[in-house]
Simulated assay, not measured.
Amino acid sequence: MKGRTLGILLAGSLVAATAALAMPVTPDPARDGSTDTIQAGWSHTSRSNGDVADIWWALRDRCSPDYLGERLLCDGLRMLARAASRTFESKMSADVGLPLPAGWGLITANNSPFIRSAHVELPLDLKTVLGFYRAALTKNGWTENAGAAVEGDRAAIAFTTSDGPASLRLTRRDGRTIADLSLHKSRVATAGFLPKPEQGRLMLGNRTDDAAVVTVNERTIKLAARAGEKLANSDDTAGELPDSQKLDLSPGKYKVTLTMDGSEARSREFEVAANETWGLLVEHGVLLPVRLY
């Protein structure tokens, strides 16, 4: 009889626990945010002439629970992601040689024969991000040049370093601060990376197994699966891209939209500066901006 009673109590407890885990929860922006899981990747290219190019990227995904059980799972993922984030930030900062602030939502970094660059998007205010970089870069031995332009939603600062000229550009957009940090090496690229004089260049690639459509303002570019996936590997590879995947644009802001089968179209604003070359790579349903030159 006691065994039967214990079994009934145990079964009842399991039913109650299962029911509790299935209880709907009210969304909590402070708890259920875009800092829960991390998608990351790295590519390394080594050529016979000794050139080496490394590309890193990382993207935080949102964990949005509807039920208590999902929230508990999200909490566990969040703890793991925070630990992984600290390891990733430390390693990438050391490998690229550029400081990386915590709390990022998207990162790309490039260390090539031409440039060391990092593109970072953060849900922090511009003043906080600017303070971080000024302190970290000074600690790294960089000297800030005179003439820094700091406004309410923008900042542009040039630096002198022992490795070459460098620059930091911050912009505030859609509740995020976007930081573009670059150190220019002495090596000059061939026509594969070079934009037309006083223009900026966008180069489009698709690193997925699905077709994609990218629209830049009113211009539509169709990308087959894996089309241009290695454009960031070298200027020779970039030069082999069809003209449709290389856009020379006047400096300014452009609306860029990515559409893939079965996914909702995703749009963002992208700023192109004169004499800069960027790769926009389709990966995990988003466009990853990588500074190439």
Rank of each mutant, 00 (worst) to 15 (best):
R86C: 01
Q245C: 10
R154N: 01
I38Q: 00
E276R: 10
P99H: 01
A189N: 09
L59C: 01
S167Y: 05
A166V: 07
G192K: 14
V256E: 00
R207K: 12
T143M: 07
T87F: 00
S112D: 07
T143Q: 11
G12H: 10
K91I: 02
L130Y: 09
G131I: 10
L137Y: 06
D261K: 09
M260N: 05
A274S: 15
P195M: 11
A156H: 14
L181V: 08
G103D: 03
T237G: 08
V96Q: 01
L281W: 03
V282L: 04
A191L: 12
H119S: 04
M92D: 00
N217C: 12
K2L: 15
L6A: 14
P24C: 11
A58C: 09
G41T: 05
P197H: 08
A135C: 01
A83Q: 06
A166R: 06
G131W: 11
G175N: 11
I221A: 15
D95E: 14
R86Y: 01
P195L: 13
F193Y: 15
R266M: 00
L249Y: 09
P289D: 02
T171I: 11
I157C: 01
D180T: 13
E89S: 01
S117Q: 02
A53H: 04
D95F: 00
E144P: 08
D210A: 15
L98Y: 02
N206A: 12
G152Y: 06
G7K: 11
P197A: 13
M92F: 00
K253Q: 09
F193E: 03
C74R: 06
L98P: 02
G12K: 10
F114H: 15
L202V: 13
M23C: 08
V282H: 03
R31H: 13
D28K: 12
C74P: 05
L106E: 00
R173L: 03
S162L: 11
T208L: 03
G7S: 14
M1H: 12
D32W: 05
A109K: 03
V120M: 03
V120G: 00
S43L: 03
M23E: 13
R31P: 02
L130N: 08
L106A: 02
F114C: 07
A238H: 08
L21N: 10
H44W: 04
R134L: 08
A156D: 11
R207M: 14
R207L: 11
L223D: 10
G175W: 10
